[in-house]
Design a protein around this nucleic acid. Structure first.
Length: 518
RNA sequence: GGUGGGUUCGUAUAACGGUUAGUACUCAAGAUUUUCAUUCUUGCAAUAGGGGUUCGAUUCCCCUACCCACUACCA
C-alpha cells in the first residue's frame, strides 16, 4: 500500500524563521514536488509562553518570497485557511486551534497503560534535580525514579481521582519502558538503535494550559494529517525513539511516517550552530527577511540585503545536499527533479558568506537588463535622479557583470548620472601630468569633432587609430581622459562613457577638469 | 556527566574497496583590456590520530580525540 506523499513543515511561531528553518522547509517542498505530493504548513504553537506576535506571518511571507509555498495548511498556495471543511479535512493547521483533539489521545494512552498522571509540581522536580546534581548525579524521570514520585502509578485510585478533579497543574507522562532496544531507521542516517533505559518519561500533556507538548501534538497531527515523511532538523533525533514508541502505543505503526533528520547549519566562524546574532556580527543575514524584534532590534534579511530569492534558495539547497555532479546553479524546477534525500549529507554545514555572494552574482547576470533597470530606478529615485528608462537599461547592460547586487550599481556607475565633483587623489597624482593631459585634451577635441552619431564601435576604433597613429601612450592619455570624465582612473571604457554621456555633457566635464586641475 | 549523531583542502562538497583524491567559493600568479571590472589560464590547499579486516582502504570494524545535538510541564 503506497500512500500519496504528504510532508509537512511545522515551525513554532516563537520568532523569525532562520535560514536553517527555510532550508528544512525547502527540502520538504522539493520532496513533495518531486513525488507529486502535498506540502503542508502546520503551526506548532503549543507553547503559549513563547508565542511571538508576527512570527507566523513572517514564516508565511518568507516561504512566499522563496517561492516555496505550501500546498496545504495555514497558508495554502498563498491563501489563508482557517477552518476545517470538506475541502480542508485536515484543517485547522494551528495546534492552538486543535486543542480539543489532544486530550482524548493522551487519556487513551493512560487507559492502555502507556502513560500516567503525574502530580509533581515543576518546583518539586526542579529542587529534586538540583539536589541530585549537587551529589554529582543526574535526575531522570523514568522507571528508576517514578516509583518514588507522586503519580497515578504510586498513589491510590481515590487519591488520583481527587487530585485530578481538585488540582490543575498535573501532567500526563509517557511511561517509558525499561531496558528495551528501539530500532529505528532514518532516511539519511540509516539504522539507529537506542536503549529505552537512557530515556525519560516525557510530559505529553499539561493540564495547566490544557495543551499537549510537542511530542504528543506532533505524533497525533502527523497521523491525522496522514504525513508520510517527516523531514526535520537534527535536534529531533534524540526524541525519535519516543516518537516510535508513541506510534506503537497508539497502534499506528502501519502508517508511521518515515523519518529524515537534517544536520544543522553551523556558524561560519568558531563553534556551535548558526544563531540569530551571528549574521549581523559577521556581516551577512541569517534570516530570509528583515525582522524587527520586540526590543526594537533589526535583524537583517537576505531580501533586504539585495539577494534574489532564487539565489537564496539555490545556495540553501546546496548547503547539505548535492546532486552528485558539478552542477551548482539550479532553478527551483531543476532542484525538484534532482533532489533526493539520500544525497543529503549527515554532517553539519558551515555557511560561507562569500559563496552566497557568488550565487547572487550569477543570478544577477541571469536577470534581464530591463528587470534590473527597474530595480535600479528605485535606487536612482532615492538619490534624487530621474533618468530615461532606456538610458538606465543601457547602463545596466554595461555594468551588470561588475556587480553582485543591484545596490552595487550606483557605486559602479554613479558617474553616468551626475558629473564628478571631486577627483581621486591617488589617480590624479599618478596620471594628471602635463605631458599626459595636453594629449588628453587633444583627444577630447578629436571626440568633440567626431562626425555624426556617437557609436561605440566606431568611436573606439577611431580613437585607437588616432592615438596609436600619433604614437601617444594609450594608457596615460586614456586614464587622463577618464579622470576628467568620472573623477577616477577606473571605470568603463572611454568610448562607452562618451556614448552614454553624449557630446554636450562630455564637453562640460572636460571643461570642468580644466578649471579644477590645470 | 549521560545518550545519540558527525569528522575529506580555510569553506561547501565529489570519489557508494583500486583515482596523479575531483569540483566550486576564497586567496595568489599570469594572460587579455585604454584603467577598473569581466573573461581565460595556472597555482596554493584535505582524507583527525591509532589499531585492525583486506592483495588493496577516504570508503568496512574497533579505540582515542575533537565537533554537534539532546538531556524542560520549549519546540
Amino acid at each position: 500500500m503506497t500512500r500519496p506523499t504528504r510532508v509537512r513543515f511545522a515551525p513554532s511561531p516563537t520568532g523569525p524563521l532562520h535560514m536553517g528553518g527555510v532550508r528544512t522547509a525547502l527540502y520538504n517542498y522539493l520532496f513533495a514536488k518531486k513525488y507529486n505530493g502535498t506540502f503542508v504548513l502546520r503551526i506548532e504553537d503549543t507553547d503559549s509562553q513563547r508565542f511571538t506576535p508576527g512570527a507566523e506571518e513572517y514564516i508565511i511571507e518568507s516561504l512566499r518570497w522563496c517561492g516555496i509555498m505550501p500546498t496545504e495548511g495555514v497558508d495554502e498556495n498563498g491563501k489563508v485557511v482557517e477552518e476545517a471543511s470538506s475541502q480542508h479535512p485536515h484543517a485547522p493547521y494551528r495546534q492552538s486551534q486543535r486543542k480539543a483533539i489532544y486530550r482524548k489521545y493522551a487519556d487513551q494512552l493512560v487507559a492502555s497503560g502507556n502513560a500516567y498522571y503525574a502530580f509533581d509540581s515543576a518546583e518539586e522536580l526542579a529542587t529534586l534535580r538540583s539536589e541530585m546534581e549537587a551529589k554529582g548525579e543526574t535526575f531522570i524521570y523514568n522507571y528508576s525514579t517514578r516509583k518514588n514520585l507522586r503519580n497515578s502509578l504510586t498513589l491510590g485510585e481515590d487519591e488520583v481521582k481527587r487530585l485530578l478533579e481538585e488540582t490543575n497543574d498535573w501532567t500526563i507522562r509517557f511511561k517509558m519502558p525499561e531496558n528495551r532496544v528501539v530500532a529505528m531507521d532514518d532516511l539519511i542516517r540509516g539504522h539507529i538503535e537506542v536503549n529505552t533505559s537512557t530515556l525519560d518519561d516525557k510530559v505529553l500533556y499539561k493540564r495547566a494550559d490544557e495543551l499537549p507538548t510537542y511530542h504528543l501534538a506532533n505524533i497525533v497531527d502527523d497521523h491525522l494529517m496522514e504525513i508520510t515523511e517527516v523531514i526535520r532538523g537534527e535536534e529531533w533525533l534524540p526524541s525519535l525513539p519516543l516518537h516510535y514508541l508513541l506510534y506503537e502505543a497508539f497502534g499506528w505503526q502501519d502508517t508511521m511516517p518515515r523519518f529524515a533528520h537534517l544536520s544543522l547549519l553551523l556558524k561560519p566562524d568558531g563553534k556551535g550552530k548558526l544563531s540569530k546574532r551571528d549574521g549581523d556580527r559577521l556581516g551577512f543575514p541569517v534570516f530570509p527577511l528583515n525582522w524587527l524584534s520586540s526590543t526594537g532590534e533589526v535583524y537583517s534579511g537576505y531580501r533586504e540585503k539585495g539577494y534574489f530569492a532564487e539565489a537564496f534558495v539555490n545556495l540553501l539547497a546546496l548547503l547539505g545536499w548535492n546532486p552528485g555532479n558539478d552542477q551548482e546553479l539550479f532553478t527551483l524546477e531543476e532542484l525538484t527533479q534532482a533532489f533526493s534525500l539520500d544525497r543529503v549529507v549527515m554532517h553539519g554545514a558551515r555557511f560561507n558568506p562569500d559563496k552566497a555572494k557568488w550565487f547572487n552574482k550569477e543570478y544577477l547576470r541571469k536577470h534581464s537588463d530591463e528587470s534590473l533597470a527597474k530595480d535600479f530606478e528605485a535606487i536612482l529615485e532615492e538619490k534624487g535622479i530621474k533618468a530615461d528608462f532606456d538610458y538606465v537599461v543601457k547602463v545596466v547592460s554595461l555594468i551588470k557583470e561588475r556587480a553582485t547586487f543591484v545596490a552595487d550599481f550606483w557605486d559602479i556607475a554613479w558617474y553616468l548620472f551626475k558629473a564628478p565633483c571631486e577627483y581621486v587623489e591617488k589617480d590624479v597624482a599618478k596620471f594628471w601630468k602635463e605631458e599626459n593631459y595636453t594629449l588628453a585634451f587633444k583627444v577630447a577635441d578629436f571626440i568633440a569633432a567626431f562626425p555624426g552619431e556617437l557609436e561605440k564601435e566606431a568611436l573606439e576604433s577611431a580613437l585607437e587609430e588616432y592615438i596609436r597613429g600619433n604614437e601617444w601612450p594609450m594608457g596615460k592619455v586614456m586614464n587622463c581622459l577618464r579622470l576628467a570624465l568620472v573623477g577616477s582612473s577606473s571605470g568603463l571604457g572611454i568610448a562607452d562613457i562618451v556614448c552614454l554621456l553624449g557630446k554636450d555633457e562630455f564637453e562640460r566635464r572636460v571643461a570642468a577638469i580644466k578649471t579644477a586641475l590645470c
